[in-house]
């Protein structure tokens, strides 16, 4: 009841943001409309750069760390492009990963191996595999285009004092490790604050929490802390984002195979 009360202003907000017949829409239409609105609000940032510290914890609490830099280019009408450079662990220092994502067809991915100076095109079928031994799968870190999922609005509810919309989404792309994800979307920021991932057997696999959101360029919300807990193996991974920079003048040239070779 209380949740419903809190959701009232949100419904008012939706009424403004969505077409007038929003009230008559099905849960599926409403879920899609929410995803589209999230996408619309996060458009126009152009390019961004950020640093990432990844902290892996096993069941015994032992930690290991990775330091990564990520640049991303927004592409209108298709998926974004991103370049990921590894600084640690030191044996993979200088390795880099180029991803040209697409809304509907499979992504294009290349890996740069500094020991051989080799650029290798790799299969993007590996959606569900662990990224750098962490609890994040490749599909968790890739560009979240609207077309990649089907949606269903479940309910509006309060989560940690925030008004959120709860939307279930079903991967439409091939090779996903999930049957469904339940996402909690903050009604003010229009950003995801929590996701529950259900594996191929529909058992709860992982929970993602995104915190310490800050607004950049007066408009774009980005999390400072992302925490993924795997309920099945007891491990967790924390992502600490820092040094977000927007509109740094990156272009397509900074996201091709030549750029990958000299990324370091």
């Amino acid at each position: 009841m209380k949740a419903a009360m809190k959701a009232l202003p949100l419904i008012a907000l939706l009424a403004v943001a969505l077409p007038p017949d929003a009230g008559a829409e099905s849960p599926e239409e409403k879920g899609l409309a929410i995803a589209q609105e999230m996408d619309r609000r996060d458009r126009g940032w152009g390019d961004q750069r950020a640093k990432l510290a990844m902290i892996l914890r096993n069941r015994q609490g032992q930690e290991s760390r990775r330091a990564i830099r990520v640049s991303t280019l927004e592409v209108e009408g298709d998926g974004d492009r991103s370049l990921t450079v590894f600084d640690s662990p030191r044996d993979v220092k200088g390795s880099a990963f180029l991803s040209i994502t697409h809304a509907t067809k499979p992504d294009d991915q290349w890996l740069y191996l500094p020991a051989l100076k080799r650029v290798k095109r790799i299969s993007s079928a590996n959606k569900s595999g662990p990224f750098m031994g962490s609890e994040f799968a490749y599909e968790d870190l890739t560009s979240q285009e609207v077309e990649k999922y089907r949606y269903k609005w479940l309910r509006d509810e309060a989560l940690d004092g925030r008004k959120t919309m709860v939307v279930e989404r079903y991967p439409e792309y091939e090779h996903s490790g999930y049957t469904r994800q339940i996402a909690w979307i903050d009604g003010e920021m229009w950003q995801v604050v929590r996701i529950e991932f259900h594996d191929r057997k529909d058992a709860l696999l992982k929970t993602l929490t995104m915190k310490d959101y800050r607004q950049y360029a007066g408009r774009y919300w980005r999390p400072g802390l992302i925490h993924m807990v795997n309920h099945q193996n007891g491990k967790s991974t924390e992502l600490r984002w820092s040094d977000y920079r927007f509109g740094t003048g990156l272009g397509e040239r900074d996201f091709d195979r030549n750029a990958l070779k000299r990324a370091r």
Partner: peptide, 9 residues
Amino acid sequence: MANGRDARV
């Protein structure tokens, strides 16, 4: 690296 894809064959 990720996936051990750097395993030089």
